[in-house]
Amino acid sequence: MSADTSQTLPRLPRLMGGAIRPLPLMPVSLALSALSRKLSRDHPGMFRRLGEHGEKRFVLDPTDLPLVLLMDLRGGVPKITAHRRAPVAETRIAGPLSAFLGMMHGAYDGDALFFSRDLVVEGDTGAALALRNAIDDAELDLVAELAAIAGPLKAPLKAVLGLAERRSGLVLHRVDALQGGW
């Protein structure tokens, strides 16, 4: 009757988490904030869609990585920073990295991931829903966004991301529904 999404959602190997742990977080924060500023410029409708929740803070906790992300929308300029421990925020959304990327790219349904307990939401549920809906409507494509700012490295970057996608099972580009891929 029920499909167990937890058996099919890719999870990053623990070794990878261990390898990432010693890395400094500052470059990650700078890169993510630059990306989020680009997204806010290119997809203004996504932030408009957040409405009353557009001034809140969201902790995104990829549970298979040794870090958490804080998405801070206060002041009208989105900022994403990486942390070892979850900072104060209105909402915390936790789950495997593949769940976040799959939702972002239209491959997975957030409600289904929540019902199956692959995703956990704590705090302001309305804000979490607004964020999910805004991102879902934006039809984002991480590979395309990164390639757009990669300059002359565009081709090798796309090749590397394509390889990473095939090896890890993570969805890194817009696919919309993965037919039968739940």
Binding site: D109, G110, D137, A177, W182
Partner: peptide, 12 residues
Amino acid sequence: QRSRAYVAEVVR
């Protein structure tokens, strides 16, 4: 209230 992934899957 569901995502575009859900809509596409169910409609198909």
